[in-house]
Amino acid sequence: MIGYVTIGVKDMDRAKAFYTELLADLGATLLIDMDRIAFIGKDMASPMLAVCRPFNEGDPAPGNGNMVAIDPGSKEKVDQLYNKAIELGASCEGKPGQRIPDMFYGAYIRDLDGNKLAFYQLA
């Protein structure tokens, strides 16, 4: 149902490097690279993450309560993505762990521009 999610960034080169490296182990690559927007994903038919400089040329502003959630397929991959994001300069918003007993395992980070992401696995 979701085609792509867009998040605003200040530095396109930095954001493309962060997200292509972070999501590479999930099979994602840089699919479309235009001047102010880039799409990262597995293929054009699967959901993608887009990073962009805002159209109005203002500063990007991460929303309070907005978050992109990525299901990498296992708890181990949640841990791997979280650790990789931290290594790439992201900040911790919640270390990997069981959030809802026997149902939801998750980890939370903020990217280099303050956008919040969750990595999760449902039981």
Rank of each mutant, 00 (worst) to 15 (best):
D35G: 10
S74F: 05
D111C: 10
Y82V: 01
A61P: 00
D113F: 01
V5D: 02
N56E: 07
A28S: 13
R110Q: 12
K77Q: 05
G94E: 04
C92Y: 00
I40C: 08
S46D: 12
P101E: 12
G73N: 04
D11S: 07
C52I: 03
S91A: 06
I100V: 15
L112A: 07
D25M: 14
I37F: 05
R110W: 01
N56R: 08
L81N: 00
S74R: 09
G73M: 04
P47G: 04
N115S: 08
K95T: 07
M67P: 03
Y4S: 11
M12G: 06
N115E: 09
G73I: 04
L112I: 09
L23W: 05
P72H: 02
L81C: 04
A28Y: 15
A85G: 06
L122I: 14
C52Q: 12
K75W: 00
S74K: 09
L122M: 15
N56G: 03
E76Y: 01
F39T: 06
A118Y: 02
P72Y: 00
G106M: 13
F39M: 12
R36Y: 06
G106D: 10
G41I: 07
D111H: 13
V78T: 08
G58D: 11
M12C: 05
P47T: 03
Y120S: 08
D59Y: 02
